[in-house]
């Protein structure tokens, strides 16, 4: 498989104005200004192969959208190289645009007053999609979601969910090699989120489209991405498989048990017995966070069984969300 996107050591710097505070400060700003250089993206490299779904994560202001702007060709890197499908995006913006589709959650790119199908027809012309491809694509869409009721509705009358769905369909319409999705599920209800995830997954499978997904919703990541890239303050923190991520802080799993007798007393006793693990009690369950590098869950369980009468048990994997939270907070060791 070949790399559709190749990024080598890109850096992007911005000049920003330092504003002074208060009425006096504003008057001062009127006459003299003071700028500082901010490095929004700092020496990032990655390769992405055709057909991958990559979760591009990071806290607000981490430099995600700057990177995406560079990949879409509307921003020139201060230094470093980007190749998208073999060409340099910012030097061939329109050519690059033919290869990509972009969706911003909450910001529609469709014609506000027009029914969806008319927007599609205009896009068909803009991207030069052949009649046959267009027809096939609409058939594919119809098989994935029920688009019939959406097609003749003006975009302005759609709900946020319908609009996002329409925007995603519009982005895939010209069968681009890469689709950038920026927080596609933001502000949507649970069932709409699920619907959109299924759609993205199906389109990726069907057309082998590369998808770059930025989101703050770990549900999106868990449902769609094999690989994730995390950046913060412009620097790359992590770039690997999602399974791998969980091992990053040791293989933690949570063992939950229900015992007869007093909950808090038992919890205290267990905590004394396993000082290396954190133990907590709530909702009739006692949870033991087991670091599998130290001992396996099975060992802990058999040990506990000797002393306590266990009525019920559960095993929980640590969630991606918790790991990411930890990375944002502590960085990678």
């Amino acid at each position: 498989m070949s790399n559709i996107i190749e990024i080598k050591n890109i850096t992007k710097e911005f000049k920003v104005l330092n504003r002074r505070e208060g009425l006096k400060g504003s008057l001062k700003d009127l006459f003299s200004r003071d700028y500082k250089i901010v490095r929004a993206v700092d020496n990032i490299s990655m390769n992405i192969t055709q057909g991958e779904i990559v979760g591009y994560l990071g806290p607000n202001g981490a430099g995600k959208s700057t990177t995406i702007k560079m990949m879409t060709g509307i921003l020139e890197p201060t230094s470093g190289e980007i190749l998208v499908d073999g060409c340099i995006p910012y030097k061939n913006r329109t050519r690059n645009a033919q290869n990509i589709g972009v969706v911003f959650g909450q910001r529609t790119q469709l014609w506000w007053a027009l029914p969806l199908v008319e927007s599609f027809k205009i896009l068909k012309d803009i991207y030069g999609v052949t009649d046959k491809d267009y027809k096939d694509m609409l058939e594919l869409y119809q098989s994935l979601v029920d688009i019939e009721p959406l097609l003749h509705k003006p975009v302005r009358q759609m709900s946020l969910g319908q609009r996002t769905l329409s925007d995603i369909l519009a982005a895939f319409l010209h069968n681009p090699k890469i689709v950038f999705l920026d927080e596609p599920t933001i502000g949507l209800d649970v069932s709409m989120k699920a619907k959109i995830r299924t759609l993205i997954h199906a389109l990726n499978k069907e057309k082998n489209t590369t998808v770059i997904l930025t989101t703050h919703d770990m549900g999106d990541v868990d449902a769609l991405c094999r690989r994730i890239v995390i950046i913060d303050k412009g620097k790359m923190l992590y770039d690997n498989d999602i399974e791998h991520l969980k091992g990053f802080f040791g293989y933690y799993r949570t063992l939950k048990i229900r015992v007869s007798g007093s909950l808090s007393e038992t919890a205290e006793k267990i905590a004394a017995e396993f000082p290396e693990f954190s133990v907590s009690a709530n909702d009739e369950w006692i949870s033991v966070l087991v670091d599998e590098a130290k001992s396996t869950v099975m060992d802990v369980l058999s040990q506990l069984q000797k002393t306590y009468k266990i009525r019920d048990m559960q095993l929980e994997e640590i969630s991606t969300e918790e790991v990411i939270k930890k990375i944002y907070e502590e960085g990678v060791k």
């Binding site: 504003r19 208060g22 009425l23 504003s26 008057l27 700003d29 009127l30 200004r33």
Partner: peptide
């Protein structure tokens, strides 16, 4: 006051 500060931000437009 907030309005004054806001309009002073825009040096060029003044």
């Amino acid at each position: 006051r907030a309005g004054i500060i806001e309009s002073l931000q825009f040096r060029l437009s003044t």
